[in-house]
Design a binder for these strands. Sequence first.
DNA 1: TCCTGTGAACTTGTTCACAGCT
DNA 2: AGCTGTGAACAAGTTCACAGGA
Lengths: 204, 204
Amino acid sequence: MKKLSVPDETIRRLPKYLRTLLSMKEQKREFVSSNQIAEFTYINPAQIRKDFSYFGAFGTRGTGYEVEHLIKMVKEILKLDSKPKAVLIGAGRIGTAIASYTGFGRYGIEIVAIYDNCPDKIGKKAGDITIKNRSNLSEIKRKNIKLAIIATPPQEAQSITDTLVKAGVTGILNLAPCYLNVPDNVRIRTIDLAMELGMLPYYT
Amino acid sequence: MKKLSVPDETIRRLPKYLRTLLSMKEQKREFVSSNQIAEFTYINPAQIRKDFSYFGAFGTRGTGYEVEHLIKMVKEILKLDSKPKAVLIGAGRIGTAIASYTGFGRYGIEIVAIYDNCPDKIGKKAGDITIKNRSNLSEIKRKNIKLAIIATPPQEAQSITDTLVKAGVTGILNLAPCYLNVPDNVRIRTIDLAMELGMLPYYT
DNA sequence: TCCTGTGAACTTGTTCACAGCT
DNA sequence: AGCTGTGAACAAGTTCACAGGA
């Protein structure tokens, strides 16, 4: 797996393929061609073939890709086959909405804990998970958790990030509208919904 | 405004600049250089200057950009100065979380209505807005609304999209984990949180 | 024949480096 | 001196077009 030469954009597309492949598997489809994946994803078929080819030759000429096998390979590439665990910080409206969301399971990711610093919330449930005191955050080191979702006000996000990084987290999905400073080995994906909505009027 | 030659990536960065500039304005800063914006956004200063230069020469050599003026220009470019209105479809957990979120106001966008098809929810409030029956969706044409946020289960997203497009919506922020088919004049931005989280383990 | 895998061409986006204004 | 604005060089990503296996 020649990680260094794989374009970042390819990695970003892999979960898209996975989503499509999983829905094809549900429909009991056994084989799929790059053209058929393209129909669903609006991604150019040559791009799709090239993306997969960075990791080996998974297809069969004349037939396409075996759905089940391709799902297995994509999960393996994305390291989703090891069932990664994630924690969620912030049990506000967005945090609790995410806690109740079942969509992460499709990618093999499980949210195993929620932390907040508001005394009234601690001990209550969000989804199926009990909200813990944020002062316990460092326990995630012991549990070897590498993923976190930040759903707190932006003022708190940086100091939480520092704690998470110290506890060994290397991937953060940040929903707070702010930039986060992290060492090179930590990957941040910030999603600011207002910002995303803010670029749409331009195109009208 | 030579819209056709402006890279898409530039448009995507403009809201980032805006967020940064607004926080600088709050701190009563009058002038800012591309290097200073770069410090906050982690975007290359030459990139920042080039991005602005697509729309004219807003800066002063030797001094930088006047914060207030630059904010005005960016808002104008993004068409945020006309205070665009948006509707929200889906009053589930994510929908109501978004309804209560005040962050859109910063970009001059106001959420003016929420629609759902669940009888128990209709008439109740989410944030400050009363939830309406989804059968009224077509009224947004009369109100000349161009933006929508979809926060429904994915099965319903395409038919809602069709209704929205018919009603004249041209920008959609889609939070349902699915692709949406729309005519060329409509811009879709799909955000699938599970997918975003799903690419992070690769980098660990 | 059908569809993959891939070098080569092309397109898009980024960064450099510096002329020129304040 | 300091910082913008921008052509030119560079880098990254996409698409084409086709050889070759099933």
